[in-house]
Design a protein around this nucleic acid. Sequence first.
DNA 1: GTCTATATTAGGATAGAC
DNA 2: GTCTATCCTAATATAGAC
Lengths: 203, 203
Amino acid sequence: MTAAASTSRNRRGRPGYDRQQVLEAAVRIFNQQGYDATSVSDIAASLGFAKSALYHHFESKASILELALDDALSGLESALDSAVRDNGSASAQLRQFVHSAVGVLTARLPQVMLLLRVRGNSEVELAALQRRRAFDQRVAMIVAAAQEEGMLRKEIDASVATRLIFGMINSLVEWYRPDGPVDAAELADDVLLATFDGLQTHP
Amino acid sequence: MTAAASTSRNRRGRPGYDRQQVLEAAVRIFNQQGYDATSVSDIAASLGFAKSALYHHFESKASILELALDDALSGLESALDSAVRDNGSASAQLRQFVHSAVGVLTARLPQVMLLLRVRGNSEVELAALQRRRAFDQRVAMIVAAAQEEGMLRKEIDASVATRLIFGMINSLVEWYRPDGPVDAAELADDVLLATFDGLQTHP
DNA sequence: GTCTATATTAGGATAGAC
DNA sequence: GTCTATCCTAATATAGAC
Protein backbone atom coordinates (compact mmCIF):
# COMPACT_ATOMS: atom_id res chain seq x y z
CA MET A 1 0.00 0.00 0.00
CA THR A 2 1.29 3.44 -0.92
CA ALA A 3 1.58 6.17 1.67
CA ALA A 4 -0.80 8.34 -0.29
CA ALA A 5 -3.53 5.71 -0.17
CA SER A 6 -4.29 6.53 3.44
CA THR A 7 -5.86 9.91 2.82
CA SER A 8 -6.54 10.05 -0.88
CA ARG A 9 -9.82 8.64 -2.12
CA ASN A 10 -8.59 6.98 -5.31
CA ARG A 11 -10.52 3.74 -4.83
CA ARG A 12 -13.27 3.41 -7.42
CA GLY A 13 -16.72 1.90 -7.17
CA ARG A 14 -17.74 0.20 -3.93
CA PRO A 15 -17.33 1.85 -0.56
CA GLY A 16 -14.89 -0.55 1.12
CA TYR A 17 -12.52 0.95 3.63
CA ASP A 18 -8.93 -0.04 4.26
CA ARG A 19 -7.19 -0.41 7.59
CA GLN A 20 -5.83 3.12 7.65
CA GLN A 21 -9.17 4.73 6.97
CA VAL A 22 -10.84 2.70 9.67
CA LEU A 23 -8.05 3.64 12.07
CA GLU A 24 -8.46 7.34 11.38
CA ALA A 25 -12.21 7.21 11.87
CA ALA A 26 -11.85 5.26 15.09
CA VAL A 27 -9.30 7.63 16.57
CA ARG A 28 -11.49 10.60 15.66
CA ILE A 29 -14.40 9.18 17.65
CA PHE A 30 -12.20 8.05 20.52
CA ASN A 31 -11.14 11.66 20.85
CA GLN A 32 -14.64 13.05 20.57
CA GLN A 33 -16.29 10.79 23.10
CA GLY A 34 -13.40 9.27 24.98
CA TYR A 35 -12.08 5.74 24.37
CA ASP A 36 -14.19 4.05 27.02
CA ALA A 37 -17.37 5.84 26.04
CA THR A 38 -16.90 4.77 22.42
CA SER A 39 -18.40 1.46 21.40
CA VAL A 40 -17.35 -0.59 18.43
CA SER A 41 -20.81 0.10 17.04
CA ASP A 42 -20.14 3.84 17.22
CA ILE A 43 -17.05 3.45 15.07
CA ALA A 44 -18.80 1.21 12.60
CA ALA A 45 -21.80 3.54 12.45
CA SER A 46 -19.58 6.51 11.67
CA LEU A 47 -18.24 4.60 8.67
CA GLY A 48 -21.70 3.45 7.73
CA PHE A 49 -21.26 -0.28 8.21
CA ALA A 50 -22.00 -3.01 10.77
CA LYS A 51 -19.74 -3.48 13.74
CA SER A 52 -18.72 -6.95 12.69
CA ALA A 53 -17.03 -5.45 9.65
CA LEU A 54 -14.60 -3.77 11.99
CA TYR A 55 -13.19 -7.11 13.01
CA HIS A 56 -12.10 -7.68 9.47
CA HIS A 57 -9.64 -4.77 9.89
CA PHE A 58 -8.66 -5.08 13.52
CA GLU A 59 -8.41 -7.82 16.09
CA SER A 60 -10.08 -5.75 18.77
CA LYS A 61 -10.95 -2.28 19.93
CA ALA A 62 -7.78 -2.28 22.02
CA SER A 63 -5.55 -3.00 19.04
CA ILE A 64 -6.77 0.17 17.36
CA LEU A 65 -5.82 2.14 20.43
CA GLU A 66 -2.44 0.43 20.56
CA LEU A 67 -1.56 1.44 17.04
CA ALA A 68 -2.47 5.08 17.60
CA LEU A 69 -0.60 5.30 20.88
CA ASP A 70 2.49 3.82 19.32
CA ASP A 71 2.36 6.44 16.62
CA ALA A 72 2.17 9.27 19.14
CA LEU A 73 4.98 7.91 21.27
CA SER A 74 7.24 7.24 18.31
CA GLY A 75 6.79 10.78 17.08
CA LEU A 76 7.64 12.32 20.42
CA GLU A 77 10.56 9.99 21.03
CA SER A 78 12.18 10.66 17.71
CA ALA A 79 11.76 14.43 18.15
CA LEU A 80 13.58 14.10 21.45
CA ASP A 81 16.28 11.92 19.92
CA SER A 82 16.87 14.52 17.22
CA ALA A 83 17.03 17.38 19.70
CA VAL A 84 19.63 15.53 21.73
CA ARG A 85 21.62 14.53 18.67
CA ASP A 86 21.60 17.97 17.06
CA ASN A 87 22.72 20.03 20.05
CA GLY A 88 25.64 20.15 22.42
CA SER A 89 24.18 21.94 25.42
CA ALA A 90 21.11 20.88 27.36
CA SER A 91 19.77 24.42 26.93
CA ALA A 92 19.87 24.11 23.16
CA GLN A 93 18.41 20.60 23.30
CA LEU A 94 15.55 21.87 25.41
CA ARG A 95 14.81 24.78 23.13
CA GLN A 96 14.75 22.56 20.08
CA PHE A 97 12.65 19.93 21.74
CA VAL A 98 10.05 22.38 23.01
CA HIS A 99 9.74 23.71 19.49
CA SER A 100 9.57 20.32 17.82
CA ALA A 101 7.23 18.87 20.45
CA VAL A 102 4.67 21.47 19.41
CA GLY A 103 5.29 20.33 15.85
CA VAL A 104 4.70 16.67 16.65
CA LEU A 105 1.59 17.51 18.62
CA THR A 106 0.05 19.59 15.86
CA ALA A 107 1.08 17.16 13.11
CA ARG A 108 -0.15 14.04 14.91
CA LEU A 109 -2.88 15.71 16.91
CA PRO A 110 -5.36 12.81 17.07
CA GLN A 111 -2.80 10.27 18.22
CA VAL A 112 -1.21 12.55 20.80
CA MET A 113 -4.63 13.59 22.08
CA LEU A 114 -5.40 9.95 22.66
CA LEU A 115 -2.08 9.36 24.38
CA LEU A 116 -2.58 12.23 26.78
CA ARG A 117 -5.92 10.88 27.90
CA VAL A 118 -4.83 7.35 28.63
CA ARG A 119 -5.57 6.33 32.22
CA GLY A 120 -4.10 2.84 32.49
CA ASN A 121 -7.33 0.84 32.32
CA SER A 122 -5.92 -2.02 30.27
CA GLU A 123 -2.69 -3.76 29.30
CA VAL A 124 -2.37 -1.56 26.24
CA GLU A 125 -2.85 1.62 28.24
CA LEU A 126 -0.46 0.54 30.96
CA ALA A 127 2.24 -0.21 28.42
CA ALA A 128 1.79 3.21 26.82
CA LEU A 129 1.90 4.93 30.21
CA GLN A 130 5.11 3.16 31.11
CA ARG A 131 6.73 4.14 27.83
CA ARG A 132 5.56 7.69 28.35
CA ARG A 133 6.99 7.84 31.84
CA ALA A 134 10.41 6.80 30.56
CA PHE A 135 10.18 9.51 27.95
CA ASP A 136 9.11 12.13 30.51
CA GLN A 137 12.09 11.25 32.65
CA ARG A 138 14.50 11.83 29.80
CA VAL A 139 12.93 15.24 29.26
CA ALA A 140 13.10 16.09 32.96
CA MET A 141 16.82 15.30 32.95
CA ILE A 142 17.41 17.74 30.14
CA VAL A 143 15.45 20.48 31.90
CA ALA A 144 17.47 19.92 35.07
CA ALA A 145 20.71 20.09 33.08
CA ALA A 146 19.57 23.28 31.34
CA GLN A 147 18.92 24.79 34.73
CA GLU A 148 22.41 23.77 35.83
CA GLU A 149 23.80 25.49 32.76
CA GLY A 150 22.17 28.69 33.97
CA MET A 151 19.48 28.84 31.33
CA LEU A 152 16.56 28.54 33.73
CA ARG A 153 15.76 30.39 36.97
CA LYS A 154 16.85 28.62 40.09
CA GLU A 155 13.80 29.75 42.10
CA ILE A 156 11.66 27.18 40.33
CA ASP A 157 12.37 23.52 40.89
CA ALA A 158 13.46 21.75 37.70
CA SER A 159 10.79 19.08 37.96
CA VAL A 160 8.10 21.72 38.47
CA ALA A 161 9.48 23.68 35.51
CA THR A 162 9.32 20.54 33.38
CA ARG A 163 5.69 19.97 34.32
CA LEU A 164 4.77 23.59 33.64
CA ILE A 165 6.45 23.72 30.23
CA PHE A 166 5.02 20.46 28.98
CA GLY A 167 1.73 21.06 30.69
CA MET A 168 1.37 24.11 28.52
CA ILE A 169 2.42 22.21 25.42
CA ASN A 170 0.20 19.22 26.08
CA SER A 171 -2.77 21.46 26.73
CA LEU A 172 -2.66 22.42 23.06
CA VAL A 173 -4.60 19.26 22.25
CA GLU A 174 -7.56 20.78 24.04
CA TRP A 175 -7.99 23.58 21.56
CA TYR A 176 -5.55 23.56 18.62
CA ARG A 177 -7.15 22.36 15.39
CA PRO A 178 -5.28 22.04 12.08
CA ASP A 179 -8.12 23.75 10.26
CA GLY A 180 -8.41 26.48 12.88
CA PRO A 181 -7.20 30.08 12.81
CA VAL A 182 -3.86 29.43 14.52
CA ASP A 183 -0.80 28.52 12.47
CA ALA A 184 1.20 25.58 13.82
CA ALA A 185 4.61 27.13 13.09
CA GLU A 186 3.72 30.42 14.75
CA LEU A 187 2.31 28.51 17.67
CA ALA A 188 5.62 26.75 18.24
CA ASP A 189 7.34 30.14 18.35
CA ASP A 190 4.68 31.50 20.71
CA VAL A 191 5.16 28.59 23.08
CA LEU A 192 8.93 29.10 23.12
CA LEU A 193 8.43 32.77 23.88
CA ALA A 194 5.76 32.18 26.52
CA THR A 195 7.62 29.48 28.42
CA PHE A 196 11.10 30.98 28.41
CA ASP A 197 10.59 34.74 28.12
CA GLY A 198 7.09 35.06 29.54
CA LEU A 199 3.99 36.75 28.22
CA GLN A 200 4.61 40.09 29.86
CA THR A 201 6.00 43.10 27.98
CA HIS A 202 9.51 44.52 28.62
CA PRO A 203 10.63 42.12 31.35
CA MET B 1 -25.35 17.94 58.84
CA THR B 2 -22.35 20.00 59.93
CA ALA B 3 -19.65 21.01 57.50
CA ALA B 4 -17.10 19.04 59.49
CA ALA B 5 -19.05 15.82 59.13
CA SER B 6 -17.87 15.38 55.58
CA THR B 7 -14.30 14.48 56.38
CA SER B 8 -14.24 13.72 60.09
CA ARG B 9 -14.99 10.18 61.18
CA ASN B 10 -17.06 10.84 64.27
CA ARG B 11 -19.73 8.26 63.51
CA ARG B 12 -19.61 5.37 65.96
CA GLY B 13 -20.20 1.66 65.48
CA ARG B 14 -21.45 0.38 62.12
CA PRO B 15 -19.77 1.31 58.87
CA GLY B 16 -22.57 3.24 57.15
CA TYR B 17 -21.50 5.98 54.83
CA ASP B 18 -23.18 9.32 54.31
CA ARG B 19 -23.76 11.12 51.03
CA GLN B 20 -20.59 13.17 51.23
CA GLN B 21 -18.35 10.17 51.86
CA VAL B 22 -19.88 8.28 48.99
CA LEU B 23 -19.41 11.33 46.77
CA GLU B 24 -15.74 11.64 47.64
CA ALA B 25 -15.09 7.97 46.99
CA ALA B 26 -16.93 8.09 43.68
CA VAL B 27 -15.05 11.14 42.45
CA ARG B 28 -11.76 9.54 43.44
CA ILE B 29 -12.46 6.52 41.24
CA PHE B 30 -13.88 8.60 38.41
CA ASN B 31 -10.54 10.38 38.33
CA GLN B 32 -8.48 7.21 38.55
CA GLN B 33 -10.25 5.28 35.81
CA GLY B 34 -12.24 7.92 33.98
CA TYR B 35 -15.96 8.48 34.44
CA ASP B 36 -17.07 6.23 31.60
CA ALA B 37 -14.76 3.41 32.55
CA THR B 38 -16.07 3.46 36.12
CA SER B 39 -19.05 1.29 36.90
CA VAL B 40 -21.38 1.73 39.81
CA SER B 41 -20.02 -1.59 41.08
CA ASP B 42 -16.52 -0.17 41.11
CA ILE B 43 -17.62 2.65 43.37
CA ALA B 44 -19.57 0.34 45.65
CA ALA B 45 -16.69 -2.13 45.81
CA SER B 46 -14.28 0.61 46.84
CA LEU B 47 -16.55 1.36 49.78
CA GLY B 48 -17.02 -2.28 50.53
CA PHE B 49 -20.70 -2.59 49.82
CA ALA B 50 -23.10 -3.75 47.10
CA LYS B 51 -23.85 -1.47 44.20
CA SER B 52 -27.52 -1.24 45.02
CA ALA B 53 -26.60 0.56 48.24
CA LEU B 54 -25.33 3.43 46.13
CA TYR B 55 -28.82 4.18 44.93
CA HIS B 56 -29.80 4.93 48.48
CA HIS B 57 -27.44 7.94 48.38
CA PHE B 58 -27.75 9.05 44.78
CA GLU B 59 -30.34 8.90 42.08
CA SER B 60 -27.87 7.82 39.43
CA LYS B 61 -24.23 7.74 38.45
CA ALA B 62 -24.80 10.97 36.51
CA SER B 63 -26.10 12.84 39.56
CA ILE B 64 -22.82 12.18 41.36
CA LEU B 65 -20.95 13.68 38.45
CA GLU B 66 -23.30 16.64 38.38
CA LEU B 67 -22.64 17.51 42.00
CA ALA B 68 -18.87 17.36 41.60
CA LEU B 69 -18.89 19.43 38.43
CA ASP B 70 -21.02 22.08 40.06
CA ASP B 71 -18.54 22.31 42.89
CA ALA B 72 -15.61 22.82 40.52
CA LEU B 73 -17.41 25.43 38.44
CA SER B 74 -18.66 27.35 41.47
CA GLY B 75 -15.15 27.53 42.87
CA LEU B 76 -13.66 28.86 39.67
CA GLU B 77 -16.50 31.30 39.06
CA SER B 78 -16.29 32.83 42.48
CA ALA B 79 -12.51 33.17 42.24
CA LEU B 80 -13.04 35.07 39.01
CA ASP B 81 -15.77 37.22 40.55
CA SER B 82 -13.46 38.15 43.42
CA ALA B 83 -10.58 38.99 41.11
CA VAL B 84 -12.81 41.30 39.10
CA ARG B 85 -14.33 42.88 42.19
CA ASP B 86 -11.02 43.43 43.99
CA ASN B 87 -9.08 45.09 41.17
CA GLY B 88 -9.42 48.12 38.95
CA SER B 89 -7.25 47.20 35.98
CA ALA B 90 -7.59 44.10 33.86
CA SER B 91 -3.88 43.46 34.42
CA ALA B 92 -4.39 43.27 38.16
CA GLN B 93 -7.53 41.19 37.75
CA LEU B 94 -5.62 38.74 35.59
CA ARG B 95 -2.73 38.46 38.01
CA GLN B 96 -5.04 37.80 40.91
CA PHE B 97 -7.13 35.31 39.00
CA VAL B 98 -4.14 33.32 37.76
CA HIS B 99 -2.95 33.08 41.33
CA SER B 100 -6.33 32.15 42.79
CA ALA B 101 -7.15 29.74 39.99
CA VAL B 102 -4.15 27.67 41.04
CA GLY B 103 -5.55 27.84 44.56
CA VAL B 104 -8.98 26.60 43.54
CA LEU B 105 -7.46 23.85 41.47
CA THR B 106 -5.24 22.59 44.27
CA ALA B 107 -7.95 22.96 46.91
CA ARG B 108 -10.68 21.25 44.89
CA LEU B 109 -8.41 19.02 42.86
CA PRO B 110 -10.76 16.03 42.42
CA GLN B 111 -13.70 18.10 41.27
CA VAL B 112 -11.67 20.26 38.89
CA MET B 113 -9.91 17.19 37.51
CA LEU B 114 -13.29 15.74 36.70
CA LEU B 115 -14.45 18.98 35.09
CA LEU B 116 -11.43 19.19 32.83
CA ARG B 117 -12.04 15.71 31.48
CA VAL B 118 -15.68 16.13 30.62
CA ARG B 119 -16.36 15.42 26.95
CA GLY B 120 -20.05 16.18 26.54
CA ASN B 121 -21.36 12.62 26.46
CA SER B 122 -24.55 13.31 28.41
CA GLU B 123 -26.94 16.07 29.43
CA VAL B 124 -24.99 16.64 32.61
CA GLU B 125 -21.70 16.91 30.77
CA LEU B 126 -23.10 19.21 28.11
CA ALA B 127 -24.49 21.56 30.75
CA ALA B 128 -21.13 21.69 32.50
CA LEU B 129 -19.32 22.34 29.22
CA GLN B 130 -21.65 25.19 28.38
CA ARG B 131 -21.17 26.77 31.77
CA ARG B 132 -17.42 26.36 31.40
CA ARG B 133 -17.40 28.00 28.00
CA ALA B 134 -19.17 31.08 29.38
CA PHE B 135 -16.56 31.22 32.12
CA ASP B 136 -13.68 30.84 29.66
CA GLN B 137 -15.02 33.71 27.62
CA ARG B 138 -15.05 36.01 30.60
CA VAL B 139 -11.43 35.10 31.25
CA ALA B 140 -10.47 35.66 27.62
CA MET B 141 -11.98 39.16 27.76
CA ILE B 142 -9.82 40.04 30.73
CA VAL B 143 -6.67 38.75 29.04
CA ALA B 144 -7.47 40.80 25.94
CA ALA B 145 -8.03 43.88 28.09
CA ALA B 146 -4.75 43.29 29.95
CA GLN B 147 -2.99 43.14 26.61
CA GLU B 148 -4.63 46.44 25.62
CA GLU B 149 -3.36 47.95 28.83
CA GLY B 150 0.15 47.06 27.74
CA MET B 151 0.70 44.29 30.25
CA LEU B 152 1.08 41.50 27.70
CA ARG B 153 3.21 41.28 24.57
CA LYS B 154 1.41 42.17 21.39
CA GLU B 155 3.21 39.51 19.32
CA ILE B 156 1.04 36.81 20.83
CA ASP B 157 -2.66 36.84 20.10
CA ALA B 158 -4.77 37.37 23.23
CA SER B 159 -6.84 34.26 22.70
CA VAL B 160 -3.71 32.17 22.21
CA ALA B 161 -2.19 33.71 25.33
CA THR B 162 -5.34 32.83 27.28
CA ARG B 163 -5.13 29.23 26.14
CA LEU B 164 -1.44 28.99 26.98
CA ILE B 165 -1.80 30.45 30.47
CA PHE B 166 -4.78 28.36 31.47
CA GLY B 167 -3.46 25.35 29.64
CA MET B 168 -0.48 25.48 31.95
CA ILE B 169 -2.70 25.96 34.99
CA ASN B 170 -5.16 23.25 34.05
CA SER B 171 -2.34 20.81 33.41
CA LEU B 172 -1.61 20.90 37.13
CA VAL B 173 -4.35 18.35 37.67
CA GLU B 174 -2.19 15.85 35.83
CA TRP B 175 0.51 15.83 38.46
CA TYR B 176 -0.12 18.06 41.49
CA ARG B 177 -1.12 16.08 44.57
CA PRO B 178 -1.98 17.65 47.95
CA ASP B 179 0.19 15.10 49.72
CA GLY B 180 3.04 15.48 47.24
CA PRO B 181 6.33 17.38 47.56
CA VAL B 182 5.11 20.60 45.97
CA ASP B 183 3.51 23.31 48.12
CA ALA B 184 0.31 24.78 46.69
CA ALA B 185 1.11 28.37 47.66
CA GLU B 186 4.60 28.22 46.14
CA LEU B 187 3.13 26.64 43.06
CA ALA B 188 0.77 29.58 42.55
CA ASP B 189 3.77 31.92 42.71
CA ASP B 190 5.74 29.71 40.31
CA VAL B 191 2.90 29.75 37.80
CA LEU B 192 2.65 33.54 37.97
CA LEU B 193 6.38 33.80 37.40
CA ALA B 194 6.46 31.22 34.62
CA THR B 195 3.54 32.62 32.65
CA PHE B 196 4.31 36.33 32.90
CA ASP B 197 8.08 36.54 33.37
CA GLY B 198 9.15 33.26 31.82
CA LEU B 199 11.36 30.49 33.08
CA GLN B 200 14.59 31.84 31.68
CA THR B 201 17.19 33.66 33.80
CA HIS B 202 17.91 37.40 33.44
CA PRO B 203 15.51 38.23 30.64
C1' DG C 1 -27.93 1.99 55.19
C1' DT C 2 -27.10 -2.25 53.16
C1' DC C 3 -28.42 -6.77 51.29
C1' DT C 4 -29.84 -10.42 47.59
C1' DA C 5 -32.07 -11.06 43.70
C1' DT C 6 -33.56 -9.58 39.07
C1' DA C 7 -35.04 -6.80 34.96
C1' DT C 8 -33.22 -4.78 30.96
C1' DT C 9 -30.04 -3.00 27.76
C1' DA C 10 -25.69 -2.49 25.67
C1' DG C 11 -21.08 -3.98 24.94
C1' DG C 12 -17.19 -6.76 22.65
C1' DA C 13 -16.55 -10.41 19.84
C1' DT C 14 -17.45 -14.65 16.59
C1' DA C 15 -19.68 -17.65 12.71
C1' DG C 16 -20.64 -18.09 8.39
C1' DA C 17 -23.16 -16.25 4.17
C1' DC C 18 -22.60 -13.02 0.17
C1' DG D 1 -15.00 -6.03 2.72
C1' DT D 2 -19.46 -6.16 4.55
C1' DC D 3 -23.72 -8.46 6.14
C1' DT D 4 -27.08 -10.82 9.60
C1' DA D 5 -27.49 -13.50 13.53
C1' DT D 6 -25.87 -14.86 17.78
C1' DC D 7 -23.07 -15.65 22.21
C1' DC D 8 -21.74 -14.01 26.44
C1' DT D 9 -20.64 -10.75 29.75
C1' DA D 10 -21.14 -6.56 32.17
C1' DA D 11 -23.61 -2.36 33.00
C1' DT D 12 -27.39 0.73 35.10
C1' DA D 13 -31.09 0.52 37.76
C1' DT D 14 -35.15 -1.43 40.62
C1' DA D 15 -37.81 -4.41 44.18
C1' DG D 16 -38.28 -5.68 48.42
C1' DA D 17 -36.18 -7.95 52.66
C1' DC D 18 -33.32 -6.99 56.97
